[in-house]
Amino acid sequence: MIERFLNPLALALTLAVLGDVVVERSGVLNLAIDGLFVLCVAVTFSVFVATSSPIMALIAVLACGAVLAVVMSMLINVFLANHVLAGLAMNMVCYGIATIVGTRFLGRALPTSLYMDTVTIGVVVALSTALTWLLLYRTSFGVALRACGYNPRNAEALGIDVGRTRLVAMLLGYELIALGAFVYLASYVGTWSAGLGTGWGFLALSLAIASLWHPVLAPILATSFAALYVSMVEIQTHPIRIGSVVIKMSPAMVSAIPFVAALVLVSILYATPLRRIVSPPRALGEPYFREERTL
């Protein structure tokens, strides 16, 4: 049973969701996550196939995440672009580059698949969760980060450099998401086709929101979804019988389930007092302009 929750997909999703939590807690609406995920998947595949070395692929994917974090941070923090539009634009660019990059190696197989056992996955999930929680709730940087997401003006008044804090948050978060994409390709899918990974970024985003941006709730939801998803593939092949009712679903309907469920979960959480317990980043998606200073 436990291996169902701790499969490679669960690890990939957990890392991506945690990364998104870090980014969005700093007040940056992270719509570029889908493009980032798709591009990182393509980069992992291409470099892995080209060099046959998982280490090189890992370095490349981390570099890719860092570059995108800097570019997005430029758009959002320096050019004060609208978060939604900047995210969508980055998505389009990333989808395109991903296809161009991956198509060169289309049809080639990964030299080795990165196998991870349940224990390793469990340890990594627990460790990344604990570290993210510690960072956000037990360090002064974490407090500053959350302050930027809650009220950037007040954060500035307390002497926090909002732009710099958001940049560091994006660097950290994007690296986590890039790692998630690496695991997704190297340990879960193992092959590549154009557009692979599309939608998983948005799924991670919706899981982060459904968990109200809390780093402990997030992996619980992520692993549950991964378990659901993996089991759904089985339900397809072996229809469940409850009494005389046979549940049989088409592959397309199964694929839609996470999205419907995320929407339902978000709605439930917003409609109940749970919303007040975990204070969400109120300034999410607000471009922050520091105004001219007379110093």
Partner: peptide, 28 residues
């Protein structure tokens, strides 16, 4: 070239990015 759609996406995306940046110079 075989990747026309992908290139189209990149270009339309770049178009939006350049508009966002030019909007910045309009307002600031």
């Amino acid at each position: 070239a075989g990747v026309g759609d992908a290139v189209a996406q990149v270009i339309v995306g770049v178009l939006l990015v350049s508009t966002l940046v030019s909007n910045f110079f309009v307002n600031y």
